[in-house]
Simulated assay, not measured.
Amino acid sequence: MPLRSRRRVAPLVLAAAAIALASSACSSETADDAGVQSSPSPSVETETPTPEPTPAPTEESSGACATGDLSFTVTEESQAGGYYLVTATAKPGVTCTLAGRTIEAGFGSNVSGDVMPSEQAEGEPITMTGSTKAYAGVNPHSGPQDGGVQFEEIIVSAGEGDMDPVSLKLPSTAEVDQPIGTNWHTDATKAVPYSS
Rank of each mutant, 00 (worst) to 15 (best):
Ala90Asp: 09
Asp146Val: 06
Leu14Ile: 14
Pro55Asp: 01
Ser41Asp: 12
Ser62Asp: 03
Gly148Asp: 00
Lys169Ser: 12
Asp69Glu: 05
Ala18Val: 10
Gly82Glu: 10
Pro11Ala: 08
Val86Trp: 08
Leu168Asn: 00
Thr186Asn: 04
Thr50Ala: 08
Thr127Asn: 08
Pro125Tyr: 02
Gly137Ala: 14
Glu29Trp: 15
Ile103Phe: 05
Asp162Trp: 03
Pro49Tyr: 11
Val36Cys: 10
Pro179Leu: 05
Asp162Val: 01
Asp164Met: 09
Tyr83Glu: 00
Pro140Trp: 06
Lys190Met: 11
Glu76Ile: 02
Val86Gln: 09
Val86Phe: 05
Asn139Thr: 09
Lys91Asn: 13
Ile103Ala: 02
Ser142Val: 12
Ile103Gly: 00
Glu47Lys: 14
Ser172Met: 13
Lys91Gly: 06
Lys190His: 05
Glu59Phe: 05
Leu170Arg: 02
Ile155Ser: 06
Ile19Trp: 13
Glu124Ala: 15
Gly35Thr: 09
Met116Ile: 10
Pro57His: 01
Met1Asp: 04
Thr173Trp: 02
Gly93Asp: 05
Gly123Asp: 10
Pro179Trp: 03
Ile180Gly: 00
Val9Tyr: 06
Asp187Gln: 06
Gly147Met: 04
Lys133His: 04
Cys96His: 13
Thr67Arg: 08
Leu14Phe: 09
Arg6Gln: 06
Val149Asn: 04
Pro140Phe: 04
Thr173Asn: 05
Ala66Trp: 07
Glu52Met: 08
Ser118Phe: 09
Ser109Ala: 06
His185Cys: 00
Tyr83Met: 00
Thr97Leu: 07
His141Leu: 05
Ala10Gly: 06
Leu170Val: 05
Asp164Phe: 06
Ile103Gln: 01
Phe151Ala: 12
Thr48Val: 13
Lys91Ala: 08
His141Glu: 07
Val111Phe: 15
Ala17Gln: 11
Thr186Lys: 04
Pro55Asn: 04
Leu70Tyr: 03
Thr67Trp: 09
Gly68Gln: 06
Ala31Lys: 05
Ala188Trp: 04
Glu153Gly: 01
Met1Cys: 08
Thr129Cys: 10
Cys65Ala: 00
Ser28Glu: 08
